[in-house]
Design a protein around this nucleic acid. Sequence first.
DNA 1: AGAAAAATGGGGCTTTGGGGCAATAGCGAT
DNA 2: ATCGCTATTGCCCCAAAGCCCCATTTTTCT
Lengths: 208, 208
Amino acid sequence: MNEKIAVIDDNYSICKALARLLNGHGYNVEIYTSAPEFLLHARDTELGCVILDINMPNMSGLQLQEILIDRKYDYPIVFISGCGDIPSSVTAIKKGAVNFLQKPVVEQDLLQSICEAIALHRKHQDQKRDYLLTEQAVETLTAREMEIFRYIITGKLNKQIAYYLRITEKTVKVHRARVKQKLHVKSIVDLVRIADKVGIKPISLAES
Amino acid sequence: MNEKIAVIDDNYSICKALARLLNGHGYNVEIYTSAPEFLLHARDTELGCVILDINMPNMSGLQLQEILIDRKYDYPIVFISGCGDIPSSVTAIKKGAVNFLQKPVVEQDLLQSICEAIALHRKHQDQKRDYLLTEQAVETLTAREMEIFRYIITGKLNKQIAYYLRITEKTVKVHRARVKQKLHVKSIVDLVRIADKVGIKPISLAES
DNA sequence: AGAAAAATGGGGCTTTGGGGCAATAGCGAT
DNA sequence: ATCGCTATTGCCCCAAAGCCCCATTTTTCT
């Protein structure tokens, strides 16, 4: 299917040239001539990747990258620079940019980077979807159930949990059953995996 | 304590200058004027980080980085370049270099990068130590025990495992007990965590 | 206030997990 | 051939977990 790509460069003719090139390779291209303009529309669309110029008035490419990271838009970024320096490229890559190309852009390099970027994005999307689904299930747990959940993945026995929470073992069993039911699992090992996936920590000695 | 740092640069006077600077900051410095020379001694010592020049005869800094990665020497690398270009810096960082500085090196930047590098190295060392300890325990498992281990972390019941392996449930119990004993754990949740840590995969439907 | 949801508990039953003790069998090394 | 390790299994028993129906209380929401 047609992946959507945003091209952000203050030079409109460069944008158009890139758009033409990428259209020719089956991509769906959106053009923005400044970073703020892009930000206005960034949340509306689902992008496969972003081609971003470094040197722009108002807001530089690196600043925009910063903002996108802050706002958790995890679009892979391919930088292109007219007169970029090494420190810029280093920070860009350190912050996760897919590549940092210099103008004039070698067509082959750009296409290759875009390919990587889109693959990366797809991977991220898949992970995120998966993560959200389990998180959503976990959120249906009541506070008490969550508490029991955490004790379970700490390896505690029903008897021990009952003791810690000053309730009967019977009640723990009920909660335990409900936790497993709500999370759609049948065994404890799956509970542990779910907990690890969404970052639910075992109950340490300190807080018990 | 005194961290050891290797400085690799074909220009001996630069090496000496850097050594003097770093000595003054409490580091223990080793000097090499070529990448191959460094490789001869790399395995003998425990380094906190490596300061590496990009442009050197025989073997470039990037090539050396490649080799170190291949050989699993996970020393953090701080690159310094006299006339480095952007593509070099990009690949260096992508492959995990801590930083890519340009000569003349700003003292503050270098010290800062070294600090990061050493912190990173310590973290890696800690993780590695932890990993090796558990891996070592896992290696004491016999083939059969490993097999049962994998079924356990797949969430299978003793009865099911027995059926798959065409043995009695009693035998599975014996193996199961031995696995837990050898891995020094008391609950299944810890087994799952160990398996995840050393990368032991559950048994998929395909291979059963 | 009244209904719905959540937490608590009981009794009873089955299944599963775990430990001890003993025995048999195969296989490689001394 | 004998020793040691591993794998296998039987029997007995107990503890832990899961599941069924049930009831009461507390909290929460409308």
